[in-house]
Design a protein around this nucleic acid. Structure first.
Length: 839
RNA sequence: GCGGGCGUGGCGGAAUGGUAGACGCCGGGGACUUAAAAUCCCCUGAGCUUUGCUCGUGCGGGUUCGAGUCCCGCCGCCCGUACCA
């Protein structure tokens, strides 16, 4: 090692090839070692790796390499979430086949990932668009159908009449298709559903045990599942009919002063012959649906001629059609209790309905007036006949019991969670393996005929589903009766593909989706890392599929991901100017801007540009930095180091040129230190030994806690200490330790250094052992305080007695000056830490 | 509205109730060099009457010998969201 510079353009490739040839990161499921499954959310093959991917995979990579050094057999796989709309859009726009487009993107992105030197087991790579993968998925889907967890039902969908396809709710913007801009229609279609609601309680309960998941994600899932318990009962109406309502607050039933039904409630529809009613229903439908708009939306109602009879008081309550009642939730009708529900309060105020108090902080305050808003809090029941004096909880139960015994209502649990509609009228997805026969109905494709593969000869010249209009593909004979029948032309939601891919990574036999015993060896995933945007859908669906597969006896694990980590985004400054003629900002990319410490100018004309906020990298703001260009310039290790430095991993990471240059400098600095290591140096440097061992221990615990930024800081500190130390055996040992500590983060540099000082690959080396005796210092710095203010510091032997420390403190001239002869009232001594004198 | 998170130097950020600002970036000064790059050394929260002292972790209170950290009440920003009965 005579070169003075580390050259990543040579070394990166050399070690990447060495790992590949040695199969260093190929996971052996038969290994006797304990197993560790590290997984990052697999990417959609859009064509380019972006900085967000680099950050995500670097974190997982550090964990994988670290775990390997700790003696685990590590599974760290990578694959491609390869079905989806962008491929079809590309087909429509560029005339390419979705499959070809996707394959080409995968090849590009794989090469990019390999240039970063990730410790991935590429032997297990697959794409969800591989017929082998989706064929197994079809088999699992059929198994779930057999188990009664898949069904068909007619449901209302968002239909884009221009693109001739169903749109997800997220794809409808202001009532128009996101792509075509056409007014979206509601259509009834027969759709495939997965019975996720069967597992609602289990999915909710399971959240409580996911201690290593972010609280935030657990709460989001809890809200999404949305369990509520209450009473469903029916009012007898003045027209002789019944009005079923649902309430989570049956304890407040004596406070009900009206009923309200949704605009699309059958009763409202029945009254729509009246033009005034029809007009009101129309008005309700037009209301905006964004959260912000709903917040300020006025409560509107239409008083129908119908009244409802209160089950206890017999009073006739007016029935309104109201814009704030949703048909989709509960029974689409509510009892209005203005005193204890804010919406009902606003409504009652507007329409001058009675606002009754039935809950009070104290029985004596039963007639306390309301202060302009409803009181939804806890308290004691008042003005409520047989409920008076009860707590809210007891009263709820009492009303439910009474309703059930008298037969006019019953306790009911209502969920917000709906069954998962998985039908998509698209080409680039997993074909749903069913056949429609006029005689036999819906018939599953026999397993020995799977996979049902996508036809290659399709065109995207006209909108709609190419499978539907393919000349031959859908025409098959019924597997049961042999008569001509039709294939299902819907494909599965791509979220199905990502709901079990982690099982296929763990085990990939040819004849089955996976082997349960192999799966049991690796699952659950020990660390799952990805973006917060998947907090609900993907993570909930994956939890559901794992449970569903366990339910039908395919696997034993219930929860797929033991620990979840959601990493922050990579952000960057924006550079812009206001376009004089149009008055809108025009953005410039970082490569077109010259950034100095006090501003930025456009390289093209030398004139200043506005330096804007640091925000997520996006094409429209032109603040994207391409990883490839950075790696070509600074090498993989500098980029990896940057991804781990400074920002805590859960927070956003601001990209900066100065930052990456600093990282590249540090790579060289370490290189010089490694290259100058004198293995023959002799002599002991006890304090450096301590620093080394303390750093090894600290970096280990930081990595285990995913505190990569702290681990980085420790490595900087030890580097500085080693640089300052005189040559000794201790110093040489410290350098060897540093190579190990750097290995998970800067693997190419570490291998290059290790090749000159050790045996084999450092990727295979064990994590350095720590001598516990060296973790504690024999001298400590004691803070000397007067009334909690620092006055002096002194060094003392570790474990010195309280008396000795007090004496040391009293001997301080600085302290004595501060005391100024005042009488000492109290002395606080914290051993090995501080002495505080109280006067 | 509700739920969650965050608020510390010029910037990213450290800190089991115990020396606030580790580590990095930026900036300043110096060394080496004919010069530059690279590298190395020093300084870098504010202020003051500078052996030291005062102030300082969004604001106002409180608990404590001692609070960035705990408690109460506010303010601001970010993210999520369902008028869910």
């Amino acid at each position: 090692m005579t070169e003075t510079r580390f050259d990543p353009s040579v070394a990166d490739g050399r070690w990447q090839r060495a790992w590949e040839q040695a199969g260093t990161f190929t996971a052996d499921s038969d290994s006797p070692k304990p197993k560790s499954y590290i997984l990052e959310m697999f990417p959609y093959p859009s064509g380019r790796i972006h900085m967000g991917h680099v950050r995500n995979y670097t974190m997982g990579d550090v964990l994988a390499r670290y775990q390997k050094m700790r003696g685990f057999e590590v599974l760290h796989p990578m694959g491609w979430d390869a079905f989806g709309m962008p491929a079809e859009n590309a087909a429509m726009e560029k005339g390419v086949h979705p499959g070809g487009w996707t394959r080409q993107n995968i090849a590009q992105m794989k090469a990019q990932l390999q240039r970063i030197g990730f410790a991935l087991d590429w032997t297990r790579e697959f794409a969800t668009c591989d017929p082998e993968y989706y064929g197994h998925e079809q088999a699992l889907f059929a198994d779930l159908y057999e188990a009664g967890l898949v069904y068909r039902k007619e449901s209302t969908v968002n239909w884009d009449p221009v693109d001739m396809t169903v749109l997800a709710n997220e794809q409808v913007i202001d009532g128009k298709g996101w792509r075509s801009g056409a007014e979206v229609e509601k259509r009834k279609l027969n759709q495939w559903f997965l019975k996720i609601t069967d597992f609602a309680d289990d999915l909710l309960e399971g959240l409580g045990k996911l201690e290593d998941w972010p609280e935030k994600v657990r709460l989001m899932q809890e809200n999404w599942i949305g369990k509520s318990q209450g009473l469903e009962f029916s009012f007898d109406m003045s027209d002789g009919g019944k009005l079923p309502v649902y309430s989570t607050r049956p304890d407040t039933i004596f406070g009900a002063s009206f009923c309200a039904i949704a605009a699309d409630h059958p009763i409202a529809q029945g009254l729509a012959g009246d033009p005034a009613v029809a007009a009101f229903i129309d008005q309700c439908k037009k209301g905006a649906t964004t959260a912000a708009a709903l917040e300020t939306a006025e409560k509107l109602g239409y008083r129908t001629p119908i009244t409802a009879r209160h089950p206890f008081t017999g009073e006739a309550l007016p029935v309104f059609i109201a814009n704030f009642v949703l048909m989709e939730y509960g029974t689409g009708a509510v009892m209005g209790v203005p005193g204890h529900d804010q919406r009902d309060f606003e409504f009652a105020t507007k329409y001058e309905l009675p606002i009754l108090r039935v809950v009070a902080s104290d029985p004596a305050k039963a007639d306390e007036p309301f202060k302009g808003e409803a009181e939804a809090g806890d308290g004691v029941i008042v003005n409520s006949d047989f409920l008076n004096g009860m707590s809210v909880e007891d009263a709820k139960q009492a009303v439910i019991t009474r309703a059930e015994s008298e037969g006019w209502g019953e306790g009911r649990t209502v969920w917000r969670l709906r069954d998962w509609g998985v039908s998509r009228q698209r080409y680039w997805g997993t074909p749903i393996p069913f056949i429609h026969c006029d005689a036999c109905g819906v018939v599953p494709v026999p397993k020995d005929q799977l996979p049902v593969t996508l036809p290659e000869d399709v065109s995207f010249d006209i909108p709609g589903n190419p499978l539907e209009r393919h000349p031959t593909w859908k025409h098959v004979d019924c597997p049961k009766c042999g008569k001509p029948a039709r294939r299902e032309t819907d494909t599965l939601d791509t979220f199905v593909d990502s709901s079990w891919y982690f099982l296929r990574f763990a085990s990939q036999p040819a004849d089955r989706p996976f082997d349960p015993e192999e799966v049991a060896k690796w699952m659950p995933v020990q660390h799952y890392i990805g973006g917060i945007e998947h907090a609900i859908l993907h993570l909930l669906y994956a939890r559901f599929w794992t449970r569903a597969l366990a339910h039908i006896g395919k696997i034993t694990v219930q929860e797929p991901f033991a620990a979840l980590f959601t990493q922050g985004m990579v952000t960057h400054e924006t550079y812009s100017r206001i376009d004089a003629t149009r008055g809108v900002p025009v953005f410039f990319g970082p490569e077109d801007v010259n950034r100095t410490s006090d501003g930025a100018t456009l390289i093209a004309d030398g004139q200043p540009v506005e330096v804007g906020r640091v925000i997520k990298m996006s094409k429209s703001k032109k603040n994207v930095v391409d990883p490839d260009a950075i790696i070509a310039r600074h090498g993989a290790d500098a980029v990896r180091w940057f991804m781990l430095s400074d920002s805590p991993p859960e927070r956003d990471l601001p990209w900066s040129d100065a930052g990456i240059e600093g990282c590249a400098r540090f790579v060289q600095r370490l290189w010089r230190l490694f290259a100058a290591c004198d293995a023959a140096a002799e002599g002991e440097d006890k304090s450096l030994d301590r620093k080394t061992h303390q750093t090894i221990a600290a970096v280990a615990s930081d990595i285990e806690a995913l505190g990569f930024n702290k681990a980085v800081a420790r490595i900087y500190e030890l580097t500085g200490a080693v640089e300052k130390a005189a040559p000794s055996a201790s110093r040489s040992a410290a350098i060897r330790a540093l190579v190990h500590l750097a290995a998970p983060m800067m693997p190419h540099l570490a291998e290059e250094a290790w090749s000159a000082m050790g045996e084999g690959l450092i990727a295979d080396a064990p994590w350095p052992a720590v001598d516990p005796a060296l973790l504690v210092d024999d001298e400590v710095t004691i803070a000397i305080q007067h009334m909690g203010k620092l006055r002096d510091t002194v060094t003392a032997p570790k474990g010195a007695s309280k008396e000795d420390l007090e004496a040391l403190a009293m001997a301080s001239a600085n302290l004595q000056r501060s005391l100024d002869g005042a009488a000492v009232r109290k002395v606080i001594v914290v051993p090995d830490r501080l002495v505080n004198i109280v006067t």
